[in-house]
Write a protein that binds this DNA or RNA. Structure first.
Lengths: 205, 205
DNA sequence: GTCTATAGGGTGATAGAC
DNA sequence: GTCTATCACCCTATAGAC
């Protein structure tokens, strides 16, 4: 519990957040972070001891952001036809503000999938129970004759694909479509309205 | 045109392909590649001079694989309702064999979007003309009353999202769904049949 | 062509002055 | 708390023996 200058610590964390999320752990340099924060390398170690420790703090934070919101919606008892728009709305809104989070989180998970399970349970998201809730809702709608036969994992991955991929490949599509930052965010904004309808029409009986 | 041992060269390229595509440029070590190939580091430089040059060869190759096939289908005059299943079939089939290509290619493009435009033109794919062809086909179907109003970029990114994201986040979803390699590929195989229907139902009027 | 040895520069981390 | 100087190791690349 050493007394530390709060503003410097946050200056460093802001810099670390920017560098790690845009470059990933392997390509990020302590010097990049120091320069971004406008201080020198030694100070990073004074506040956070090592690159690994600093990375863990940022990753944990982004990991939560990435999974917790959608986990809560998915695990709720909201009806299926409300859940889908709620997820789309939530994902596109938060990711528009933090476009490089998906690539960062998924990229680092890919390098270290073993660490992933315990971590996701740590943030209070239980894949199995979520999966179970979703399966039950799909079953119910199917029996009512409102949707086609589809299994939970398929529907879930369809929703997440459509919501997340446009951010993962944002730089790629910006070049292809010749869009600048602002154009692309407008494009995403327009998708908000279209995507739910697209998904629901895709599963409706 | 020095005479070089073809089999050693390919041994190295195979190793480089594996290491670069799974770890990315920044995390890949020349020593990883040497060990994977069963030779020593110096030999890598003898054949390919530098890490950068070696990487370029692998990236160029994977870049082509990733864009050319789908580019040809998209640019063809195949009717829209055949084009969509053709893309899905092509993508899921080739990516099932090379699951880490999307993360590799998109990840490296994200780090260097400037280099991307010239490169894609280099492989004979012209985004603008493809976009134009697709737009015309959508317009035509819309006038026939067969599909809802949707713009080219939206439809295209929907298709690519659904096809590619499951491979980008493969390790993540394998943990969530508790699937091993074989389970996941079976899951993908099943999606092949479902996805086209899902997309077409999603845009149908 | 393939190896060992090593140069040369980067990179994370620490010591110590202020 | 913040800095400069520096260590120790890592990593790419090259030299030179075989």
């Amino acid at each position: 519990m050493t007394k530390i200058d709060k503003t410097t610590e946050e200056l460093i964390l802001n810099a670390a957040r920017k560098i790690f999320t845009t470059k990933g752990f392997a390509a990020a340099r302590m010097d990049d972070i120091a320069k971004e924060a406008g201080i020198n390398r030694a100070l990073l170690h004074y506040y956070f001891r090592s690159k690994d420790k600093m990375f863990d703090i940022i990753f944990e934070e982004k990991f939560r952001e990435f999974f917790m919101g959608v986990g809560l919606i998915l695990g709720s008892d909201m009806p299926l036809f409300e859940k889908i728009p709620a997820i789309i709305e939530h994902e596109l809104t938060t990711l528009a503000k933090h476009p490089d989070v998906p690539m960062f989180v998924i990229g680092e998970i890919s390098q270290n999938p073993e660490k992933f399970l315990q971590r996701i349970q740590g943030v209070g998201v239980n894949p199995k129970s979520i999966s179970h809730i979703l399966d039950k809702q799909i079953q119910a709608e199917y029996k009512k004759g409102t949707i086609k036969k589809i299994d939970g994992p398929s529907l879930l991955i369809n929703i997440m694909s459509l919501a997340i991929y446009p951010f993962i490949a944002k730089n790629l599509w910006q070049v292809v479509f010749e869009m600048d930052e602002h154009d692309y965010l407008k494009f995403i904004e327009k998708r908000k309205k279209e995507l739910s309808a697209f998904i629901i029409d895709g599963i409706r009986a």
